[in-house]
């Protein structure tokens, strides 16, 4: 009974306050929580990436290690032809390694906006995925439900002077920190591309979105899907893995 009352009170508050619901969680914390939830403190994953085009499709398997929001390293495990190709990200910078020529190359700024391995993710998407937390101001604009859980719709606007290309991002984050959708808009608030989490399952000891789909707006037949095969969190990963020397030695 008490709970019903409380719920009613909350509802009335919402009705009065419109968007600015006082009982909502802090949106920045929500976003930060979602990013941390996705990454964990450390994580190790095997992901299958599918690049789909109208006339063609390609699949590869990627092994990835991440540490917080700053560092990550990943190698391609399959197909055999690309096996061993690696990418190291430290902060805003990226290096790539190719086993055939046995060389590490630092990506020049001109390549950062190019697509990563031909996918719909750009190098920047990978290198700067964490700046959603610090470079934007967040506001909860709506709430929905997803599989019985509350989903907060968050509008994230870049802070003045933030070196980010998007005019706006719209995030849908479930109350259990799971990111459902991340949409990227230009400055005219027009959708450019969107990342949608399509399947949420138990993985690595927690509920996790196991299927990610990045799709450009207005391009039905052009998308990239990430499918998590395995995932582990909280591993004790040595700092040395996120180095150029380690990039040259694929852990496959």
């Amino acid at each position: 009974m008490k709970r019903i009352f409380a719920a009613l009170a909350v509802l009335m508050c919402f009705a009065a306050a419109g968007h600015g619901r006082i009982n909502d969680p802090d949106p920045r914390e929500l976003v930060k929580g979602a990013v941390n939830y996705l990454r964990g403190k450390t994580s190790q994953a095997v992901v299958e990436m599918t690049i789909h085009r109208p006339d063609w499709q390609r699949q590869m398997t990627i092994k990835a290690w991440t540490e917080g929001r700053e560092n990550s390293i990943f190698w391609i495990a399959a197909p055999p032809k690309d096996r061993g190709n690696g990418t190291l990200k430290r902060g805003d910078e990226m290096w790539i390694f190719n086993p055939k020529v046995n060389r590490v190359i630092k990506l020049p700024p001109s390549m950062m906006s190019q697509s990563w391995q031909g996918s719909d993710f750009s190098n920047n998407d990978l290198a700067k995925s964490d700046n959603i937390v610090d470079q934007y101001t967040h506001e909860i604009i709506d709430r929905q439900t997803h599989q019985g859980k509350t989903v907060y719709v968050i509008r994230s606007l870049p802070k003045p002077g933030a070196p980010v290309v998007w005019g706006m991002q719209e995030l849908k984050i479930r109350e259990d920190h799971i990111l459902i959708r991340q949409a990227f808009f230009d400055e005219d608030q027009e959708l450019v591309k969107a990342l949608t989490m399509e399947k949420i399952e138990m993985l690595g000891g927690r509920l996790y979105p196991v299927k990610w789909k990045m799709q450009k707006a207005d391009q039905k037949e052009e998308y990239t899907v990430l499918d998590y095969q395995s995932l582990e969190f909280g591993l004790d990963i040595s700092d040395r893995i996120f180095t150029i020397a380690s990039l040259k030695n694929p852990r496959l």
Partner: peptide, 16 residues
């Protein structure tokens, strides 16, 4: 020189 790009099938193209 090291050349690094993308092949016709989207694979990594690299050569020295």
């Amino acid at each position: 020189l090291v050349v690094l790009g993308q092949g016709r099938d989207g694979s990594v193209a690299a050569t020295a």
